[in-house]
């Protein structure tokens, strides 16, 4: 994803449209992986893009747009998790996952791929939020450590240690162990 920078102060939405075309899909799925919920992710991304567009003038010329945009998305996801989602009557993660898979996976997709996706989502949801966000930004959005540091407002060293810890926890997940071709019985489940 390499969105074109917006012209600061311009009041038309042409730039926003171009930006959305380039970034919306990846941002939406990043939010889905962070929040674990499609509806929340849709709201979060919508809010994030509008916020970013409103305050596009604050983006300096020397600032990289990609981590800045992901910072907006991540912050909006944090806000969703802190303020709104705890107040809702939510079902268990497993039920959410099953419903999401039933709704989003087409019948034509291979059963193995769906199973992999379910395991990955379950393992990802089990990760603490401060570890889940760097993992998603690193291995799905493709951000580097420095860009992740900008996106989450932490130092690159912190990002590195969090990624290491997240990989260690994910390696203990039985589903991912099977995916990696290892027996699932050795490791413990992902610490919740």
């Amino acid at each position: 994803m390499n969105p074109a920078p917006l012209r600061g102060g311009q009041r038309d939405t042409d730039d926003l449209a171009r930006w959305l075309e380039e970034s919306y899909r990846c941002s939406f799925r990043t939010a889905c992986l962070i929040l674990g919920n499609r509806a929340d992710a849709e709201e979060a991304v919508q809010e994030a893009f509008l916020r970013a567009w409103r305050f596009r003038a604050s983006l300096g010329t020397g600032t990289s747009l990609k981590p800045w945009l992901y910072r907006v998305v991540v912050n909006t996801c944090y806000s969703k998790l802190r303020q709104e989602i705890p107040h809702r009557d939510r079902r268990s993660d497993a039920a959410e996952l099953d419903d999401r898979m039933a709704a989003s996976v087409s019948p034509e997709e291979e059963a193995g791929r769906a199973e992999v996706a379910r395991d990955v989502l379950r393992a990802l949801t089990a990760l603490p939020l401060h570890l889940r966000v760097p993992v998603v930004l690193r291995y799905y959005a493709g951000l580097g450590e420095r860009e992740i540091a900008v996106a989450i407002g932490r130092r690159p060293g912190t990002v590195k240690s969090r990624l290491h810890e997240a990989r260690r926890l994910l390696a203990q997940d039985p589903g991912l162990r099977i995916l990696a071709g290892e027996p699932a019985s050795d490791g413990e489940g992902v610490r919740r």
Binding site: Y24, F28, R29, A41, R100, A117, L121, L124
Partner: peptide, 12 residues
């Protein structure tokens, strides 16, 4: 794995 999981979310 993450790409496969993310692809399960249909983009609005």
């Amino acid at each position: 794995a993450l790409t496969a999981a993310a692809d399960t979310f249909a983009v609005p």
